[in-house]
Write a protein that binds this DNA or RNA. Structure first.
Length: 283
DNA sequence: AAGGCACCCAACCGCACACTA
DNA sequence: ATAGTGTGCGGTTGGGTGCCT
């Protein structure tokens, strides 16, 4: 689904996102949250409009997004919800954790619409047949349509799919490329660092056993995390505990003050610390 | 093998709503 | 009350992929 990259009048890029852009967006949002989508691309070093960034994050990059095949239960639920709600995709998506409204909408138009139409025509066929044959008709049991439950994770839990979320992206090496984030998780449960608020386990691991607090600052790390924190603090003028307290993505809507240095500048600094050939140094 | 076609889905667009000054 | 701004939603489109002839 590669749309040919192009640029609009104001020089903003359109079209398919590159892995590099994804990395920048993930890194920025997990770091600072989405305090203002309009301003975000400028600070994140992206030549995209805010709307495009938001869409990319919400529909593709954010943690816990399920990708892959729909279960029969999910499909039945979508059909049932669509009967009741119509094209209110975001409302329908609320009942399917991990699925985005866009994805559900696409799946509806490509697959479920036909099936739903087929079912309803079949049902109306049976219905008319029944109405003709009233002699041995019984009252039908009440429809369960009013009993809608949010699907439990089950085997298709976000965690199960989180890995495919990353690996199914345009560049399958993205997960590898993002492995530098491993280096930022803490060494012991209960300790926190700036990336603790990112559900790294949900994003990158399939096995719950290896999810939490498993990775250490690499031995070759030339500076301690405290130094990194201090540097970030000086850049952002934000209280250090801004990075240390949040535990979930939802809590990280950062901050009343915008970062004072560009994120690209920070990456320039952090680049040698993580000894990873990750970031474009040309930004 | 190659061309045509339908399917699928990421991404764009326009509009409406919410919020704030 | 109103204008400006940011965000969310639903409809639509562009183009890659795979199947069919």
């Amino acid at each position: 689904m590669v749309r040919t990259p192009s640029y609009d009048k104001s020089g903003l890029k359109k079209g398919t996102w590159t892995p590099e852009e994804d990395r920048k967006l993930i890194a920025y949002v997990t770091r600072y949250g989405c305090w203002n989508w309009r301003q975000l691309p400028r600070f994140a070093g992206l030549a995209r409009c805010g709307k495009s960034c938001r869409l990319r994050w919400m529909n593709y990059l954010r943690p816990n997004i399920k990708r892959g095949n729909y279960t029969p239960q999910e499909e039945d639920l979508i059909i049932k919800l669509h009967k009741e709600m119509g094209n209110r995709w975001s409302a329908i998506a609320a009942y399917l954790p991990g699925r985005t409204d866009n994805e559900i909408k696409n799946h509806w138009h490509t697959t479920l619409k036909k099936r739903s139409q087929h079912n309803s025509s079949t049902q109306s066929h049976h219905k008319s047949k029944r109405s003709k044959d009233t002699s041995n008709s019984k009252p039908h049991s009440a429809s369960s349509s009013s009993q809608i439950e949010i699907l439990d994770s089950g085997p298709l839990s976000p965690r199960s799919y989180s890995s495919s979320c990353i690996t199914s992206s345009a560049n399958s090496s993205l997960q590898d490329d993002l492995s530098f984030l491993d280096a930022l998780t803490v060494t012991e449960p209960g300790t926190q660092n700036l990336f603790t608020h990112l559900n790294l386990d949900d994003m990158f691991y399939d096995d719950p056993a290896e999810t939490i607090m498993s990775v250490q600052v690499p031995p070759h790390h030339p500076a301690g995390l405290e130094d990194a924190f201090a540097f970030q603090d000086s850049l952002s003028q934000a209280p250090l505990d801004t990075f240390l307290t949040g535990t979930q993505m939802a809590d990280v809507s950062y901050p009343p003050t915008q970062p004072q240095a560009s994120f690209a500048d920070e990456l320039e600094y952090l680049y040698p610390l993580y000894d990873m050939d990750l970031w474009s140094r040309s930004t």
